Structure formats: structure tokens, C-alpha cells
Simulated assay, not measured.
Amino acid sequence: MATTGLTRGMGSFFKECEHPESRWTRCPHEYKIRYRNAAGQQTEESGFATQEKARTRLAEVYHARKNSPQSQRKAERIQKYGGMQFSAYAAEWLKGQRHQGPASLRMLESTLKNHLLPAFGSRRMGTFDHKVVEAFIETMERNGVGLAAQTHAFVRLKTILLDAHRLGLYEDNPVDGVQPPQYDPKRAVIPSLAQLQGIRTAGDEAFNLVAELMSGCGLRNGEALAINVDNIVADDVYRVTEQVNQTTKTYAPLKHRKVGEYRDVPLPARTKQAIEHYADTYGTVEGYLLRNPKDITLPMPHHTVDNQWRRIRRSRQVHIPEGMVLYGLRHFFASNCLSRGIPITDVAEWMGHRSIEITFKTYRHLMPGSIGKAAKILDLGLAA
């Protein structure tokens, strides 16, 4: 079935028959037309005896759509925002992100300042398409930008462009078909058990406790800093209810969770003993263990642990894998779970991931031979 296009946005006419387009004017089959209605949905009409009637109907629909109040408003938005520079549009968009927390806003501003504005600050909003976005990703890769920074930059750019797309600036979604920055499993550097044992005793007792909590329970850095003995809800269960916000240096809801929401995680006996030992040695404040060394009424700030980690790495007194960051202690927890056959759905829940896809993309390489293992287990069931 061939179709004949007209002016962009006008639609097309065609015949659903075996005849080539060159014989349409002589064959007896009716013409059909296809166009997008005022709501943007593809629509077909049939019953046109001649090509001229099909064209006339398409022109009627096109002009009615162009002259509708909705189309006029869209045209006004295109005129207003199409020529606007990305920097001005992003600044206006940022004002509407009041629902974001302080840490999220800080990251948004950082991503704009360090990646998006240098690349697109003066670009007119109406000139974006998938090729522009793909070239941006390629440039970040070529310049050695870290994967996390690449991902944040792409997600923010995508969000801003989709906002503009909803205003009608683009006929087609400017990020359709664009492959986002791809995760490389080799980037998740995980310590061996022997290396972990050295790391867990390399700092002061506060650092060592954080290392125990991250590697034993899979807590994030900020969640470990908010450790509270009252959250030990069973001998083998710890309830994660809050974190220390890196920006505000105060207790805050968990990542991807609302105030009052929590998640329960496994509490190994070794980790429980480490918590109790610290509490017995240094005491607690309303159940909290880790406090600001300069003011015990405040939580321990992130930089206290981060600075120790940097000193430990520089000292070379313990063997730390090349490229490992403090977050590698949390990666160890996931590796320990998955290598022992614990379902990835459980691991995703315990780690507080927003979706299992994040867990799968990050740790799929830690489950080698899972298909072969499954085949053997299924074979046992079939032979029973």
C-alpha cells in the first residue's frame, strides 16, 4: 500500500488495493485519507471517489486544526519559547521544582552548572532533536565524564526537553530512540572479604561502625550515619527509617520514600554486636549512636566519614581495590546476597532501590551461570 504525502502536517491519501500509484486515477477502488486530529491522534477516513475529493477533505481538516483555539495557543507557545535560549528556559523550569528536597535541588543546580549550561546555554529551544542529544552523550563519553554524572545530565536534559515537548515545541519527542548512558558493571568495584576485613578496622570506631552497617545491612552512607538502637526490631532485623541529609546535615526521610516510610533489612549477628558495642562504649542520644564530635546534639556529618576514607586510602596501610569508593561497601552487601542465592527481588527491597531494574542493571554480572543453575534445578523437578 503506497501513500502520498502533502504539506507537512497535512496528512496523506492512499488506496488499499493491488494497483500501483500510477494507476490510482483509473482503478475503481476508493481513496482513504490519514491525518492527525486536534488531539494529536492518528485518524483515517474512507469513501473518497477521486483524488481531488481526498485532497479537499485533508485541506479542510488541516485548516480547521490550524485555526482552532488550541492550535493558536500552541503557535503562541512556540513563538514564545522556540527562540528562547536553553539557559533562560532551564531557569524558568527550575523555579517550578519547589517540590524537590534541598539535596535534590542542589544536584539539579550542579548538573545544570557543570554539564547542561556549558553545552547548551545559548542554544535555542526549538532546535533540539535526538541528534543533538546523542551528540551530547557522545561528547561526555569522549571527555571521560563519570557514568553517574552522565546519567544525571541525561535525565535532567530529558526532563527539560519533555517539558518543552508538552508545550508543543516539537512535533516529535526529541529524546525518542536515544540510548541513555550505559552502565558498565566493571565500574562497581567491590572489595573481597579479606580486603573488607582490613577496611572495617582501619578508621576510628565511628568509621568502623559505618563500614559494618554498609557492608552488613546494605545501608547508604547517610542511612548508616542515622543508626539508632531503637530501630533493632528483632534480633535479625533492622528498620531503616531515615538518613542524615548531606546538604542540610539533619535527619531526613529515606531516598525515594515519604516521611514515616521505612524498609526492614537483615541484621547479621556480627553487625548487631557492633551496634551494641558502640552503644555500650559511647552511649546514645535518643537512641542515636553517631553524633557530631563538636556538638553531640547534632547528627554526625558526612564529611567526618568521607575524610577518614580519603586518609585511609592515602595511607595504603590496608589493601583497597583500585577505583573503589566508600559506596563499594554497600556493593559488597549486594554481592554477598546474590552470590549466596538470595533472590534479587529481596535484595532490591533491602537496598531501597526505586525499581528492580536498577538492581538488575547494577548487579547482573554478580550472578554468573544463573541460567545453567536454573536448568539443573528444573531438571531435578522434572525427574522427580
Rank of each mutant, 00 (worst) to 15 (best):
R106F: 01
A91I: 00
E30N: 10
K53P: 08
R77V: 01
F13Y: 14
E18S: 15
K74V: 00
R55N: 13
K53N: 12
A103M: 14
T4Q: 08
E18M: 12
R34M: 03
E16A: 11
Q72N: 10
R98E: 15
F86S: 03
H63C: 02
K32E: 01
R106V: 00
Q85D: 10
R36A: 00
K53I: 13
Y35T: 00
G40R: 00
M107F: 09
I78S: 01
A91R: 09
N37T: 02
I78R: 11
Q97P: 06
Y62Q: 08
P20Q: 07
P102W: 08
T4V: 07
S68G: 03
C17K: 06
S87E: 13
Y81C: 12
T25R: 14
A54W: 06
E18D: 14
T50Y: 07
Q100L: 15
Q79C: 09
T56F: 15
T3L: 11
T56H: 15
R36V: 03
L105W: 01
S68T: 03
T56S: 15
K15I: 12
E76N: 15
C27F: 06
H63D: 07
P69Y: 03
Y31T: 01
G9E: 12
E44Q: 06
K32P: 02
S68R: 05
E92H: 07
Q51K: 14
S46E: 05
H29R: 08
Y31W: 03
R8A: 11
R36T: 00
S22I: 04
N37V: 00
I33W: 04
R34V: 00
K80Y: 07
L6Y: 07
L6Q: 10
S71A: 10
A54C: 05
Y81H: 09
S87V: 06
L105R: 11
N37C: 02
E44K: 02
L94T: 01
Q85E: 13
K66I: 01
M84V: 01
A75Y: 00
M10K: 13
Q85P: 08
S71L: 05
A39Y: 01
G11P: 10
Y31M: 01
Y81P: 09
R57T: 02
Y35I: 06
G96S: 12
T50Q: 02
A59G: 11
S104K: 13
H19F: 13
A91W: 03
